[in-house]
């Protein structure tokens, strides 16, 4: 069973934090098919958050096809995210490493590298939408 936590300073809305924590647990294999998520009341009582927030998170997970609600029984995981794409991460990670080495050799410090990455990431993300 997953236990949720909330980071008040992350700037990420509480409902999205719950969604991300489930996705993360699925990716790491901490949650598997058939596992039950905590009930809305359990999450509400544990975290002192609004029930609508939990419902919204569970609805979004359901919409993404990751969980299914069985009325009166609970919400269950229907799919895992520990898939084959993880294997594809290897080469990508190596490319990124090489790029980071080049950036350091070019004299960029960590902050500059992060800023460069984030601005480029955002620009391409925006171009993809447009």
């Amino acid at each position: 069973m997953i236990e949720f936590h909330l980071d008040g300073r992350s700037g990420v809305s509480p409902y999205l934090q719950l969604v991300q924590q489930v996705r993360h647990a699925l990716r790491l294999g901490l949650l598997r098919e058939g596992d039950r998520l905590p009930t809305v009341k359990d999450v509400v009582t544990q975290l002192a958050i609004n029930p609508n927030t939990v419902l919204k998170a569970y609805r979004e997970l359901e919409h993404a096809g990751l969980v299914a609600a069985r009325p009166g029984v609970g919400t269950f995981v229907t799919r895992t995210l520990t898939d084959a794409t993880l294997a594809a991460h290897g080469p990508l990670r190596q490319d990124l490493r090489r790029w980071l080495d080049r950036a350091r050799r070019a004299g960029l410090d960590d902050e500059s590298i992060e800023a460069l990455f984030m601005t480029t990431f955002r620009t391409t993300a925006r171009e993809d939408i447009a």
């Binding site: 809305v40 009341k41 509400v44 544990q46 975290l47 002192a48 609004n50 029930p51």
Partner: peptide, 14 residues
């Protein structure tokens, strides 16, 4: 404060 809000939210859920 946390306990108070937990109980309040539990009542909202129930």
């Amino acid at each position: 404060r946390r306990e108070f809000l937990q109980d309040l939210m539990e009542a909202v859920a129930e």
